[in-house]
């Protein structure tokens, strides 16, 4: 890793993961993670092929960044992905404030996770659905995939028809919370 260690002042980062867990790191460039009162050092190694590993407490973790947009990261550790949002103390406060003040967002959009062909819709407009309920079948890679609802709600609008080809991130279904 190439970075300067010049900055001596304390830089605090709050990393929030998908299930709303938060981890605080002060000056991560000093390469340790604090556990209890102990600072346990971290080692970063990369092999000949360019795989990067973190070694912590004698355990080796393969790490990779799949996506990064501003302060939003998707990190792969040993093949499992974790969404992480890195906040400063202020932006963390802001995030909490905005989450609290969030006006009940009425419409949730179900987007295509990949491009493919719609085989059939398993729901109809105005139907009430549960979280985890399959909404439609999308064929990609010659495989039929169920697209599953991530919220409870009512189907507000279906934007495509069977046989339609959709692109990644196209809004397939709008669900009213």
């Amino acid at each position: 890793m190439m970075f300067s260690k010049s900055k001596k002042n304390k830089q605090k980062f709050i990393a929030c993961t998908g299930n709303n867990k938060k981890y605080e790191f002060v000056n991560p460039k000093e390469l340790y993670i604090k556990q209890g009162k102990e600072n346990i050092p971290i080692e970063i190694v990369s092999d000949k092929q360019g795989f990067v590993y973190i070694i912590w407490k004698k355990k080796k973790y393969l790490v990779d960044i799949i996506e990064k947009n501003q302060n939003q990261y998707e990190i792969l550790v040993n093949g499992i992905s974790y969404p992480v949002s890195v906040e400063s103390p202020f932006s963390y406060k802001r995030r909490k404030y905005l989450a609290k003040n969030k006006e009940e967002s009425k419409i949730e959009q179900i987007q295509a996770p990949m491009s493919g062909k719609i085989i059939e819709f398993l729901v109809e407009e105005n139907q009430v659905i549960k979280e985890g309920e399959p909404l439609l079948i999308l064929e990609a890679m010659k495989m039929q995939n169920e697209i599953i609802s991530n919220i409870h709600g009512k189907i507000n609008k279906i934007n495509f028809h069977p046989e339609d080809t959709v692109m990644k991130d196209d809004v397939l279904i709008e669900v009213e919370k």
Binding site: P28, W56, V63, Y73, V77, Y82, V84
Partner: peptide
Amino acid sequence: EQDEEMIAAFWAALNYN
């Protein structure tokens, strides 16, 4: 593994830094 999520959080924070 137990600490994988924290490692992910750390890696993101370090890279952001």
